[in-house]
Design a binder for these strands. Structure first.
Lengths: 176, 176
DNA sequence: CAGTTTTTTCACAAATTTGTGAATAAGATG
DNA sequence: CATCTTATTCACAAATTTGTGAAAAAACTG
């Protein structure tokens, strides 16, 4: 008898896929994702075209249309999905962005900027001469560092992912 | 008991500090922190020595000892606080780590590793030949990229913070 | 613009999280 | 060892979040 799992054939075991959807969604939840948003996102991720309709999502996840609506609104806002409507169709399609992780980190930068502003007020309240004040200012500088460096990191990711030539190692990581 | 603030030190406006504590804690909450953990953490952050007792935290935040206990357990687990007990005292002190952000990101790496493993299973379930499978594998490679690069980024932060005013690249924006 | 189909909104119920008070355990001191 | 102090645990109440069904709104078709 041949092996029961032709892993290179395009025949996905729907049950295994469903298990994966739930598990990865749970992982993302630990990372701060709203639960339903995580499940919807992973469902789109495992769809063959990388896009689903709301009806498909509601059906395959066994949830209401309202839940899907709320989840996609969140996912679009954080940049992980885009809405598409093909002319001649009434159904929206929700598609994962090709540079979804880049987008997700870009939003993070806005958040970091806000935190920096809060920290500036904290430094002022405590006084720059105090130990607490300088500790707070170091925290602010850390966030500033991230805000500057994360976009560069994402650029390097794009470069590595697109120019998949033949230099997987020995990169000094210092050329914009 | 007779430990008073040095007269030459600036005077922190306690009300402004309290406002900052609540605001920054709220910011951190948006980023996925449990609420009470965020408030406790910021309280320690703004303390002059960078350490507080549970009683001090409960008092200044107006919450129960139980809430503090739960919050510090979380904060210690994610590496943002360390517990200290001075010999001869019964009180624990909770101190912010000097490399707290480094630690926080280090834990993130463990999480990323787990996600990669989940994604491997997803690739197997979908088949490497499918579009969904390769999309999933690209996601896995992205997390792998982060897991490798984030520690390097943190090393660069440490270097910049420890006073390397002259960066290898003309990149610095502020002067300490 | 009437007729469908699809998406969104909203009040409410279910489920989860969060914080408290009281009891218990752990630890130091005389 | 008795006693005091501090930290943790636990059951429960309060608050927040999450998901649903039904109704309304939006969008495309003919």
């Amino acid at each position: 008898m041949s092996e029961t799992t032709p892993s290179s054939a395009p025949r996905p075991d729907e049950q295994a896929v469903a298990r994966f959807v739930e598990r990865f969604a749970l992982d993302l939840t630990q990372g701060g994702f709203p639960r339903m948003a995580a499940r919807v996102f992973v469902r789109v991720l495992v769809s063959e075209d990388g896009a689903c309709t709301a009806a498909e999502l509601a059906e395959s996840l066994g949830v209401s249309a309202a839940a899907v609506s709320g989840a996609v609104r969140y996912l679009i806002r954080v940049g992980l999905l885009v809405r598409e409507r093909e002319p001649g169709s009434r159904r929206d399609h929700y598609r994962v962005r090709d540079d979804m992780w880049y987008e997700a980190f870009a939003r993070r930068d806005e958040q970091l900027g806000g935190w920096e502003e809060t920290l500036r007020q904290g430094v002022a309240a405590l006084g720059v001469g105090t130990r607490a004040g300088s500790r707070l200012d170091e925290t602010r500088r850390f966030f500033e560092f991230l805000r500057v460096e994360l976009p560069k990191l994402m650029d390097r990711w794009r470069a590595q992912r697109d120019g998949h030539g033949a230099a997987p190692e020995a990169d000094s990581a210092d050329s914009p």
